[in-house]
Amino acid sequence: MLVVENLDLCYGDAQALAGVSLEVRQGAVVAIVGANGAGKTSLIRAIAGILKPKRGRILFRGQNIAGLESHRVCNLGIGQVAEGRQVFPTLTVHENLLMGAMIPRAKKRRAENLDRMLALFPRLRERTGQAAGTLSGGEQQMLAIARCLMGEPELVMFDEPSLGLSPAMAQAVLDTIVDLNRQGLSCLLVEQNVAASLELASDAYVLENGAITLSGTGAALLADDRVRQAYLGM
């Protein structure tokens, strides 16, 4: 579904990604593990079209999308739940959700999807008229996920979805991702909770200093000594 080939990305002179290759198969959950600053968010933003890669290809359903503008990438069916949630604080919950459906592919079923999201996230239903900035962190994360799903994505990239949330709320977010995946959504997951993300991932990659150093199934990486030492503290 998504194939990244030899991706290079630079911020000025600093190289953020060097020859990154990975694949997300249809219906899979793929985890990316790595320390802060390893390039996880840069990778997601490059795929999303927010950052322009210097070299390499990003194939989505066979089409090279590297360098495409972000609204065009979104319209192909690649959604993103970004780090720090990135809701629109002064817009209401209702308006935030509608903003997820501004891309052409999602316009037709906007009303229908809105109902679906409010049914899926009852906490948001109680707060539709409230400014998104007044929601708790967990509620904002739910809103970010619901807003993304309003765009009818086929692949969603989750960037640190449980960061800053209470353990119970973090678990609820991960459960939501599992549920969405069961319904057929393909997921690319960057998560600080390495153990949890490897447990639910079919495939996983370790990203260090902008390069992939290890890859395999989630279970294999979970059992790998290097991963256990570096990321699980065992």
Binding site: S70, C74, F88, T90, L91, M99, G100, M102
Partner: peptide, 20 residues
């Protein structure tokens, strides 16, 4: 609303695919 959204949070606007 989309213009207010872009003024509110530019990263968020790119994330949801608004044509900024």
């Amino acid at each position: 609303a989309a213009i207010r959204a872009a003024a509110d949070n530019l990263t968020g606007a790119a994330v949801v695919g608004l044509d900024v």
